[in-house]
């Protein structure tokens, strides 16, 4: 277990998240991709705190901020999914053609 190994794992999580967020059509699945990217980010932040900052608590603080970002993303995401379904009856991104040029 080393900082490099941790960073590779977090890069893998982030990569899977990027793939999911770009490839999925369903809004909720896109959100899952975003969450997975944040998952990788949290791992990287804590890895740096563990291996590179000499136990400076600000590293953990950054992880708490990422957790808050995750909660905000989820709350706004779910609200938008519910609203867009109610207003446009859309559940996949292809149905929101008005956003196209």
């Amino acid at each position: 277990m080393s900082l490099e190994a941790l960073l590779v794992v977090s890069a893998a999580l982030f990569g899977v998240g990027v793939y999911g967020a770009l490839s999925q059509q369903s809004f909720v699945m896109i959100m899952m991709g975003l969450e997975l990217m944040l998952n990788g980010a949290i791992l990287a932040v804590v890895a740096f705190w563990w291996g590179s900052t000499g136990g400076n608590p600000e590293g953990q603080l950054l992880a708490v901020v990422v957790l808050a970002v995750m909660a905000i993303e989820a709350a706004i995401g779910f609200a938008l999914v519910a609203n867009v379904y109610r207003v446009r009856k859309a559940d996949i991104s292809e149905k929101l053609r008005r956003l196209r040029h």
Binding site: V8, F14, G15, L22
Partner: peptide, 17 residues
């Protein structure tokens, strides 16, 4: 998407390594 995901992984892992 596959290319983007793999690219993100390779780039970030390279930074890490």
């Amino acid at each position: 998407s596959i290319v983007a995901g793999a690219g993100a992984f390779v780039a970030l892992a390279a930074v890490g390594l």
